[in-house]
Structures are given as structure tokens and as C-alpha cells.
Amino acid sequence: MTSNDPARDALAAITGVDAGTSANPSVTVPIDALVSILDVEEAGDDRFLGHNYHAPNGRIFGGQVLAQALAAATKTVGDDRPPHSFHGYFLRPGDPSVPIELAVERLRDGRSFSARRVQAVQHGKPILSMIASFQIPSGGLDHQAPMPEVPRPHELPTIAERLAEAGHRLEDLGPLLRSQPFELRHVQNPLFLTPGPEKIAEQAVWIRPTSPLPAGDLLHAIVLAYVSDYTVLEPTLRAHGLAWATPGMKTASLDHAMWFHRPVSFDEWLLFVEESPSASGARGLGLARIYASDGTLLATVGQEGMFRVPE
């Protein structure tokens, strides 16, 4: 599913959002619509149903499936055990026309840790397989990598301003920009349509919800899992002088891992510090450290993606 506007297609592919594709058109606030689909529906016997929010390019956004699988797993664990990590493999493209069946298997409940396996299924076949781990909060060793010095969000152009500078008519992109549940501000030039000026395998992006999230550390962690699939693969593109709109390029997420280091509050700007340490065999690895604006390291993400580029 593509439009005649490469900027619209690239932005929709990155964020999983395209204007007018909400499964519940009565919910008009973008962040409220996102929260509604991440609250997966109970279907009995540790089974849940996930509804599809957006379907750019005719397939379900990977971050949606990750977040719904994590949400389903959390519903089988006590409130005293927040998630501390998950590892998932994308097995097949998701079909936006049918709900996602989420089957949770209780692997272990120990004194401090719990583990769950989640299979996200459509048409009788898994589209994602995930194992998530949960832990009762406890004390212990504590250190973190420092947040780098980068421009603050208010010092950086908005996506609308970036696109306007590139000659795009904002009246054409207005509905898409207004439908976004998150605002992004790239420290380097975004890679929507054109490569960056330098071939470097790193970047930084500030991200925040476009309106306040409901309270709750657990919800904020699930929403952060959703948005963790936004830009983590971009350093691979940047390192090779590519953009999301590169003609003939095919990309797909292969697997995704995330570690929650500290309680998440997503009521403010978060900084995603991203790099790609390696690309080979038509695959690129992306890593991201996610910081609160005060420099607290909240989470780390790793994702490998497939990149097929015409020769």
C-alpha cells in the first residue's frame, strides 16, 4: 500500500502510522488510539486478542506486535513484577485485515523472576515468537553509560520544518503529521527521502508522545516497546548513504531485543542514541540506548534487519 508521495510513505513506514487507518475511528487523539490497541483483549486460558491500529504499506508495524505480545505477557504476571527484558523474532509479515491471536505460555515463576513465551498468530501461523522476563524490583550494583552531549529538542527542527525545507507541501502532509502519536526530532538530518551528508553509523533522535500518556510504569514500558521499533535500524542506512525512500530497496525487521534498566516515564522527551556496529550478509544490526532527558539510562534495544539494495 503506497501513495504517490515518497515522504508520506517513508514516514508512515518508520512510525507505523498512516492517516485515516485507525481501527477505531471514533478515537481521535493519536496517543489514545495507540493505548486502546495496546490494551489487548482477554480471550480465556492465557489467550488474548490484539486489534490492529495502523497498516501502512499493507502490513502490520512490527512495534505494534512487539508491544501487544509484551502486554499479553504482563497480564499473566503479578503487578509486583515489571518486565526487565524481552527477545522476539519476526517470523512472517502481519496481516492488518485480521486480529492477532496472542497465546501466552507460563514458563517459570520463581521467587524473584518470571518468564513467559508469547506466540502471536494469524491464519494459524506465528508471525512473532517472544520470550519475556519479569522481576520483582530489588537493589544491587548500579552504574550506567553517560548520555552524550547533543542539542536539546527545542534546538532542533520539527519533522514538518525538515520536510518544508526540502520543498514538500505541508498541506498535503498535514493529516499524516497530525495522526502521529509521537514527535521525532533528529539530531542529524532525517533519512526519509535523502541520505545524510556523511556516511556514519550513528545518530541520535529525541522522541516524545504528542499528548500525555495515562499514568502507570507498566503502560509506559509497553508504549516504549512500541516506539523502540522506530529508528533503531537507521544507522545502518546512514552508514551506507541510503534513505528509506531508496528506489528498489527492501527492508524487514528480523529480531528485536529490549532490556528495561530502570522504571520508564514517557511523559517527556527521551533520547535514542543509536549505532550500527556491523552490516553483512544482507543484514544490519542496530543498537539504541534510551535516556530520560535528565541523563538516566532507561533501556537498551538491539534489532537486526534485512537490507536488500539493488546493485
Rank of each mutant, 00 (worst) to 15 (best):
K125N: 07
A72G: 06
L242Q: 06
E275R: 14
S36Y: 11
N57E: 12
E171V: 13
T300A: 05
W259M: 04
R117W: 05
G174R: 15
L184T: 01
M306N: 09
V223N: 02
L237T: 00
A73Y: 08
A103C: 11
L176N: 09
D109Q: 15
L193S: 10
L177R: 14
T251S: 14
P96F: 05
S228D: 01
S133F: 06
D9I: 02
S36I: 04
S22G: 14
A73V: 13
M258Q: 08
L173W: 02
Y230E: 03
A145W: 13
G196C: 01
P30W: 08
H240R: 15
A145M: 12
A201K: 05
R47A: 12
E101M: 06
T28W: 07
Q188P: 10
G286R: 07
E42C: 10
R92K: 08
I14K: 10
L102I: 13
P214W: 10
L271D: 09
S265Q: 14
G94C: 04
A245R: 01
L11I: 15
T231H: 08
L163S: 00
Y53F: 12
L298T: 08
P126C: 04
Y291S: 05
S293N: 11
M147D: 03
H261A: 07
G124V: 05
S85L: 09
R308Q: 13
L38M: 05
P30F: 08
P209N: 00
S26M: 08
A160L: 01
A245L: 02
R81K: 15
P137Q: 06
A120T: 09
R111P: 01
E183N: 02
A73D: 04
R59S: 11
A67M: 11
L287P: 07
P212I: 10
G167C: 03
A221E: 04
E171H: 09
A132R: 11
R92V: 04
S36C: 07
V65F: 00
L191D: 01
G62S: 10
V187W: 00
D109C: 12
H168M: 10
Q188K: 07
A69T: 14
L102Y: 11
A225R: 05
S114T: 15
M147P: 06
N52R: 10
R111V: 07
R106G: 10
N4C: 10
V121D: 06
D109V: 13
P153Q: 06
G216D: 07
A73Q: 05
N4I: 05
A239L: 01
S112W: 06
D267K: 09
S36D: 15
G284T: 06
A67K: 09
R238W: 02
E311C: 05
G196I: 01
N24A: 11
E149K: 10
Q122Y: 13
A215E: 14
T74V: 11
V301F: 02
E149L: 10
S112V: 14
H143I: 05
L184V: 00
D32Y: 06
S26P: 02
P175V: 05
G62A: 11
G78A: 11
P148C: 00
A13I: 12
